[in-house]
Amino acid sequence: MTPLAMAMAELDEKRVLELVRRELSAQRVPLEIVEECRIGLNIVGERYGRGEYFLSDLVMSAEIFQEVLRVLEPFLAGVSVCEDQGGKADILFGTVEGDIHDIGKNITISLLRCEGFRVYDAGVDVPPDMFLTLLRETGARVLGLSALLTSSFEAMRRTIQLVRMVIPKSQVRVIIGGLVNERVGRYVGADAWVREAGEGVAICRRWLGVKVVRRAMI
C-alpha cells in the first residue's frame, strides 16, 4: 500500500493533504492520486465492517476525501469523480416518503461508490412513484430504501408494492436499511435487509457481481 493510501486509511488528514500536494508537484496524474485515496477509503470501509472503525471515522474519511478533491479540482477539470455518468446507475438509493433521515443512507452510498458502484442518490422523503420513475431512468438493478421511523415502514411497503407491480423481481432487487430486521423485511416485501452499511455493500456486490467494481470512478 502506498503512503497516501495508508494515511487515508489512518485518517491522518494533514499527511494525506501533504502527500497529495507533493504528488501533484511531482506531476503525478490527478486521477491516480484519487485512486490511491480510494484504496485508503476501501480500507476504512473494511475496518468499519469489522467493527474497528465507527461512524465518526467514516464521516471523517469522507471529509478528508472531500478536501482531497478540493485540492485536485483545478487539475480534474471536466472529469467527474465518484459521481454517476449519463444518468445511468447500478443502484438507486433513497429515504422513503415521510422520512428525512439520511446519515445511514449517505454512509452506505459513499461506501458503495468507493467500491466502484454507480449510485444514484434520490435524496430523502422520496414518494413511491418517484422511485419508479428513477428506476426507469437510471436502469438501476438494485433499489436501496432507507427509513428510521416505524411509521415509515408503510411507505417502504407501498414503494415496493408499486415497483413490483411494474418491474419483475428478476430485474430489480430491493434492499432495505435503517431500523429494520427480518420481520420488517418480510412485512414490506424486501429481498434483503441490513442494519449496517457494510452488510449492504456486501449484498450489492453479490447481486451485481464484482465486475462493476472500479469502473465508475471516472
Binding site: 416505524t150 431500523l179 429494520v180 420481520r183 420488517v184 412485512y187
Partner: peptide, 8 residues
C-alpha cells in the same frame, strides 16, 4: 424491540 411491537 419496537419491530416486535410493530409487527409481532
Amino acid at each position: 424491540p419496537i419491530s416486535l411491537l410493530a409487527f409481532g
